[in-house]
Design a protein around this nucleic acid. Structure first.
Lengths: 207, 207
DNA sequence: CGAAAAATTAAACACCGTTCAATAAAATAA
DNA sequence: TTATTTTATTGAACGGTGTTTAATTTTTCG
């Protein structure tokens, strides 16, 4: 049948992705539907499948975009705490990072949760884009952790950074899914920040 | 229509729960289906809805059972490290707890993940059973954390324990969903244990 | 036994992801 | 230009889901 005059393949992919991202933000992972995305952009379901191949690949593309937004958001948070200003202490920048992790998740709950709600069927490998965007995000943390540690400890920064991301992730998850509220915890961000500070100090950081 | 001779209401509820749990363990949250559970126990879907009211309440019941199993598993792990034996040091018991957290999740991935995959629609409150079973699990950790801290720090044990559970949860999640593998981390358990030890030391524990 | 109560069913509804022959439009060839 | 090939798009069909409900069966009890 026919090529439409108003969208080439590239534009169509971008259109689906943009609307898919919006729908995910509004509806959340559990209620997300590829049919609904198709309806919203005025194409039929089949077209979506021609472009993305499957539901899973569409979700992965949406999540990849979320990683991109997230990394940009964190860099923006850090830019408010410049290295050379009065508030340039590594502690401040680390705190800004933890706070940024939490506030991105809080202000974009559905798209943030979708990253962890979705799991690829076993055997299907992650697209390269996904791994790369995720690595970018991790690199930001590695860089800041390395800056907080004494120069001679730089080698351990990557492993420690990954571990601290997991620490913050755990706290953020419990904050957003109600686990902390259920158990009586009222300030998850403070708890996460404290745990990160302790581990950095144990690794030799002077905070 | 009629009451069957072979199951009263209580037995039927237990039957559904047992088969539901089994199905969740085999299929995982994404492929779980109440219709499939009904088919397996030889009842129709309607009966399931008469007993549990909705899909969500069935899932919550399954997850509540998982919390119960999990707490029992952890107590069993701790029993292998008795308080009064040669290996009675709090550090050993804390390590056993972290290891138990990981190994339960690893050996029961689907039912463990289902706890965090499922989210109640907003407005519907958690059943009391769920909160209670979850509190039991947390109490185990609070008790061990308090034992690791100096007596005068006992008051902070509950908050610290919740935070350490979040820390371990984050590491366990990243270990099981492939995040750590993607980022090159090869020993999540070691990382989690190290973070917990650091935080306990910072709180005054002599490990 | 017969009537009231309770339990169970099966069909219907509105969704979902996925596939695929038919079709319409664009690109190319004659 | 017209004819043909290639490409993009569709919409119906399939088998699945959670959920509701009228009809039906079974049990209970007077």
């Amino acid at each position: 049948m026919g090529r439409r005059s108003d969208h080439n393949r590239e534009e169509l992919e971008a259109l689906i992705l943009a609307e898919g991202h919006r729908h995910m933000a509004e509806a959340g992972f559990a209620k997300f539907s590829s049919r609904e995305v198709a309806k919203r952009i005025g194409y039929s379901v089949g077209t979506l499948y021609n472009v993305f191949g499957s539901y899973d690949r569409l979700i992965v593309a949406i999540n990849t975009r979320t990683f991109h937004l997230w990394a940009a958001y964190l860099e923006h948070c850090l830019a408010s705490n410049p290295k050379d200003g009065r508030e340039s202490r590594p502690e401040t920048r680390i705190a800004a990072l933890v706070e940024g992790y939490f506030s991105f998740a809080r202000e974009n709950t559905n798209i943030w949760m979708a990253i962890y709600d979705h799991r690829l069927p076993p055997g299907i490998p992650m697209p390269e884009d996904y791994a790369r965007q995720r690595a970018v995000l991790t690199e930001v943390v590695v860089r800041e952790v390395a800056a907080a540690l004494p120069p001679e400890s730089g080698a351990i920064a990557p492993r420690l950074a990954r571990s601290l991301v997991a620490t913050v992730h755990g706290h953020c998850t419990f904050a957003l899914n109600g686990s902390f509220a259920l158990l009586g915890e009222t300030d998850p961000l403070e708890m996460a920040t404290a745990r990160v500070r302790e581990s950095l100090r144990a690794a030799g950081a002077r905070l």
